[in-house]
Nucleic acid binder design. Structure first.
Lengths: 218, 218
DNA sequence: GTAGATTTGTTATTATAATCACAAAGTGAG
DNA sequence: CTCACTTTGTGATTATAATAACAAATCTAC
């Protein structure tokens, strides 16, 4: 099956399935039914089966799915590359936390380069990564063949960072700045972008909470 | 218009619109057309207009929308409560970064309580917040009337944290643990949950990158 | 005031995603 | 072997979301 025929929504759920299956594995659950997953994730079992059918996963009728087999297949699609180097831009509080974040490593990602514009930070080292001057970004990223950048700078810096990235061989961006980047704000190259807006995430929670509170009152 | 009639997809975009409008404001752009937003966000202008119609925003035909007016209206819906206190569970690298994160404050969120199980951390202070023993969670959260919790513990701790939360007056959860929580894993109360899985986010980028790379080759 | 250019607001249409419904395949007890 | 029970896989159906199409409103220039 051609990957690109798999709908994005299904791809998104793949990562959720992966976590769930890892859970099954830890619990020693060797096999599972679509209902097992569905119950745990609060979705319909038909959705699980249909998703699995997209990625070609095969269960046994009357029996279910083999945990290891499906996990392997899901991982093959969701994590197609074993090792991927990444560049971090902005080594403030959030940036440092990301540098120290163990979860990236376990999923095969390595922050190989870290950049900042602050003279006091440049040259210092975190977890064996020497923080480099953002002015060297293009050169160093090219040399390492890095295509993914994480932006974790204050929002007022994002404009400069975008310039730097446009000018480099970066093709995908994980943006923690509270400015929504879309295709790196309409440059000709097409970038792959994911925006993580932490305060908006809290706000969304708060929104649904308020909604719940108001319906309770009425 | 009743809030609950606004589709979730529209609500999600509200936060994106808000960022965009803040951008307009900073640029001194007093008014804008649906095309202005659409171009910047790489979406269709009809979608913008339709979304705005849901929230009752009114533009002027032949003219456009007033930046301040729309921003006010969007914010009223997207950020219905001016001040919301939040509890943080897990003051490791990520937790500390969140405690220091300025963006929460500007959006009206305050991490009022922070908890950990590590004896060495309990009692110490970050940004004026004294780190408390997780065993006091229920009591303290109730006293402060907090309904939102942020989980930033290592994944092996999440089971215990869930127990603690179920047992408390928490109603909404922002989960940074790489375990997908759905309705706090099927307890009777219905929780509002948003999962932020940082390594999955990177993995998603990597997926689309690989896809791009492979189509380029073919 | 009118014509031509803009731009909104909304209905109709199309596209996409989720769910249902059920046949097909497998299991296990007797 | 047969019957009752599970559970998958998928075509048909329904629900939801995005886009297109266009009338209605406003603006500008003359």
């Amino acid at each position: 099956m051609n990957k690109s025929e798999v709908p994005d929504e299904v791809i998104n759920r793949l990562y959720i399935y992966a976590r769930c299956l890892e859970g099954f594995r830890e619990e020693g659950k060797k096999s599972f039914s679509s209902d097992d997953i569905a119950d745990r994730l609060n979705i319909k079992s038909t959705l699980v089966r249909k998703d699995f059918s997209y990625i070609g996963t095969m269960g046994k009728r009357g029996v279910g799915y083999d945990t290891e087999e499906v996990l392997k297949e899901v991982n093959q699609i969701a994590f197609p590359i074993k090792e991927r180097k990444v560049a971090l831009i902005g080594v403030g509080k959030l940036g440092s936390a990301l540098l120290n974040f163990y979860g990236f490593k376990t999923q095969g990602f390595k922050i190989a380069l870290a950049f900042d514009k602050d003279r006091r930070k440049i040259g210092s080292e975190i977890r064996g990564i020497k923080i480099d001057d953002i002015n060297n970004f293009k050169k160093r990223v090219k040399k390492e063949g890095i295509k993914i950048a994480i932006i974790a700078v204050p929002s007022e810096e994002v404009v400069n960072v975008i310039k730097e990235i446009k000018n480099s061989c970066i093709e995908a961006v994980l943006n923690f700045t509270p400015s929504y980047l879309s295709s790196l704000n309409n440059c000709s190259n097409d970038f792959i972008i994911r925006n993580i807006d932490l305060s908006s995430e809290l706000a969304r929670l708060s929104y649904y909470l308020s909604e719940k509170e108001s319906t309770k009152r009425n």
